[in-house]
């Protein structure tokens, strides 16, 4: 059996954690992988904590359950750390990636003694700089690809150009900003 990379996303309803997990699935699919991207549906409302999942593999995936021992955890909103057990089951040879203005050392004390790698990314600043608005999705996607190494960075970036061109066919002006957001987050993610 090949290695399966399992990723769990924590966000708040309306922030696009589900969309980010689907974007990651898309990107991995485009590089030839077998993928799963699925949200855990609950009583959804704006601002409520939500969870989404990805599995990425070189072989066909058959398992259909939630992910309890992820390789990577992505936290789209750092206020969740106080209320959700974001490191539950997270493998110590994996990593957690948090969207925050803080440094990894500043975040670590809030992670219930998690001994693995802690990475941070200021997705808000990057998003506002490159897109003019707060869309944390694209920077978080760049960060998770960088930290997990789940696909080749160059292939990923080239592919995302095409993907964004397709996705934003009616708004071509935002393609460049999104690519810049990806590039910047891949450079600026801290704690690798």
């Amino acid at each position: 059996m090949g290695k399966v990379v399992e990723i769990r996303w924590h966000g708040r309803g309306g922030q696009g954690a589900k969309t980010a997990s689907l974007l990651l699935a898309d990107a991995a699919f485009n590089t030839g992988k077998y993928i799963q991207g699925f949200p855990e549906y609950g009583p959804e409302r704006m601002g409520a904590p939500i969870t989404a999942y990805n599995r990425i593999s070189d072989e066909r995936l058959t398992i259909h359950s939630n992910i309890y021992e992820p390789d990577y955890v992505v936290v789209v909103d750092d206020t969740l750390i106080a209320t959700v057990d974001v490191t539950a089951g997270l493998k110590e040879d994996g990593a957690i990636i948090v969207n925050t203005t803080k440094t990894p050392d500043e975040v670590k004390p809030f992670l219930k003694g998690y001994k693995g790698k802690v990475c941070t990314i200021d997705a808000r600043t990057i998003s506002v700089d490159t897109l003019g608005k707060y869309f944390p999705n694209t920077p978080m996607l760049g960060a998770v690809v960088k930290v997990s190494g789940v696909m080749d960075e160059k292939t990923f970036l080239n592919d995302m150009v095409e993907s964004f061109k397709h996705k934003f066919a009616k708004k071509p002006e935002v393609v460049e900003g999104n690519i810049k957001a990806l590039e910047r987050s891949m450079q600026e993610v801290k704690g690798i």
Binding site: L22, A25, D26, F29, Y34, I35, Q36, G37, F38, P39, Y41, R60, L61, H64
Partner: peptide, 12 residues
Amino acid sequence: QDGFITSHAIEN
């Protein structure tokens, strides 16, 4: 098919 588990999961 199973609601949410496969109906809402993106797969190959």
